[in-house]
């Protein structure tokens, strides 16, 4: 049993992951090429996983990579490939009403950022230290004790969703 040691993470790690996340998310939002957007989304998911590690949730970071990169991104790429008649890689998506959308989004971002910066958070301190022990045992315990009902409901939801998706996408009804 390892002792509970705290780690000091350098600040530039946060900035690295934040820049990767925000820059690739901006690329997803502004590029016209659907395939480029899908691959930029890959970098966003990895950047977010890095932020999860810095937020002391290593199990969620691994889950993020497994589920988002391994599952959802592959599904999205299948969707890109199956919904285009052309065989070229250059699959375009035009932007509708670029200026109004940009104005609305900029207003939203300004409002959120201003609200987050101005608010005097009750817990604005340094927060819990990042520990070297995994959070997976705690999550496992919580899933079968305090969160058992949501866990079971989620499993049924997943089953229904996957059976439903298979039914909807079936070629011959």
């Amino acid at each position: 049993m390892e002792t509970l040691s705290t780690l000091t993470t350098p600040d530039w790690l946060f900035y690295l992951f934040a820049v990767i996340t925000v820059a690739s998310a901006a690329f997803v939002a502004f590029t016209k090429n659907v395939v480029y957007a899908a691959f930029a989304l890959l970098f966003t998911f990895f950047g977010v996983a890095g932020l999860y590690v810095l937020l002391n949730s290593d199990f969620l970071a691994v889950t993020q990579i497994l589920v988002y990169v391994g599952g959802i991104l592959v599904l999205i790429l299948f969707g890109v490939m199956l919904t285009n008649r052309s065989i070229s890689v250059d699959i375009q998506s035009e932007t509708l009403k670029f200026a109004p959308a940009l104005i609305v989004t900029a207003a939203l971002l300004g409002t959120l950022a201003g609200f987050y910066t101005v608010t005097d958070w009750f817990f604005g301190g340094p927060g819990a230290e990042i520990t070297a022990t995994s959070t997976a045992p705690n999550i496992g315990n919580a899933l079968v004790t305090t969160h058992a009902l949501p866990f079971e409901v989620a499993s049924v939801v997943l089953l229904v969703a996957l059976v439903g998706a298979a039914m909807i996408a079936r070629r011959d009804k």
Partner: peptide, 30 residues
């Protein structure tokens, strides 16, 4: 030092780019 606000600002930027993609793109995949 990195505080709560830094993470909230990253998430606000991510949210705004997501909303932009949802309301302005023609392709349902994006």
């Amino acid at each position: 030092h990195i505080t709560l606000t830094h993470y909230l600002l990253v998430s606000a930027a991510l949210f705004s780019f997501g909303v932009f993609a949802v309301i302005s793109k023609r392709n349902a995949i994006i």
